[in-house]
Design a protein around this nucleic acid. Structure first.
Ligand SMILES: [Zn+2]
Ligand SMILES: [Zn+2]
Ligand SMILES: [Zn+2]
Ligand SMILES: [Zn+2]
Lengths: 155, 155
DNA sequence: CGCCGAACGTTATATTATAACATTGCGCTT
DNA sequence: AAGCGCAATGTTATAATATAACGTTCGGCG
């Protein structure tokens, strides 16, 4: 939930990324939409990456470091880009809420503390010890909502 | 979101399940945990089902009818079993929240209207036209929480 | 130097899902 | 009854996603 507890510590205990991890992360950061593992692989052939296992290993490490999320409903991956609510200070942001356009695949990562609290409450009512939660919302982004009203034929 | 708008209409416009759909649904209802498509297939070999496509077709139809959900984080399927909050009358129950035990795979389908409203608000703030949402929470169920405290070795 | 462990490279295989097409069965029209 | 249409089905093949298994490279370090 909290990726980095102390926001202003100068030291960096993070052991820096390996070459493959850096390549994969850069690829995801450069992408306009979530990418499948094989799409990442395709974009890294020129850099010497050749096998799925290399990509999946890097993705796995990046997920452990909190730098990449997996979108379960797409079998795809995105670089972490929290969009914090403007009216927020140091409060825990709550779990990531991914909002995914079914038309153009544009994806935003949002957070909302209320949702996190509510889910926690709901789970605890069942005696459930919550570990991670994935919230993925599908629909149409603002641009595509407008577009499909006028032109219902573009894939 | 609302599976059946009119709760007390006597007529049943629902065209009844086909044989394969009924078999698949019964399999999921009988299962203690979510099942992958191939696990369903294995359990229906004796009933003459032999190919993945048959299972996926039935699952797809059942999902359209709202009788089955797909758990994205497990690539697995469950029969719909809403657990309504006791303090609820006819209010819309909100989206399903799946609570999944990482240890025993037991899964419960809960609902909470607050979460639905909050997600809708969050999405609308982005100009996003919400269509469906999937909320999946992982952790330890009550039984497994107790068990793993005493016996941290059982898989 | 020689060892160890982490990251890497490579090959093979497992798991999940869909494409494509022929066949069956049943209601409806003629 | 014969013929048609259409949905569900059966069947085969293949795509897409993910992991297993094993050997190699490369530093740090005793
Ligand atoms: Zn994030
Ligand atoms: Zn869009
Ligand atoms: Zn349900
Ligand atoms: Zn459990």
């Amino acid at each position: 939930m909290t990726r980095d507890a102390a926001p202003h510590l100068p030291d960096r205990p993070e052991p820096a990324l390996t070459r493959n991890q850096a390549l994969v992360l850069a690829t995801l950061e450069a992408a306009a939409t979530p990418l499948g593992a094989y799409a990442v692989l395709d974009r890294l052939r020129d850099d010497g990456l050749k096998a799925p296992a290399q990509i999946y290993r890097a993705l796995s490490a990046l997920q452990d470091k909190g730098l990449v999320h997996r979108l379960e409903c797409l079998n795809a991956f995105v670089a972490c880009r929290h969009v914090h609510d403007p009216a927020e200070d140091g409060a825990p942001p709550g779990p990531a809420v991914f909002v995914i356009c079914d038309h153009c695949s544009a994806t935003r990562e949002l957070t909302d503390p209320v949702i996190g609290g509510q889910i926690e409450r709901l789970a605890r009512n069942q005696g459930f010890g919550l570990h991670t939660s994935s919230i993925e919302v599908r629909g149409l982004c603002a641009a595509c909502s407008r577009a499909t009203q006028n032109d219902p034929g573009t894939t």
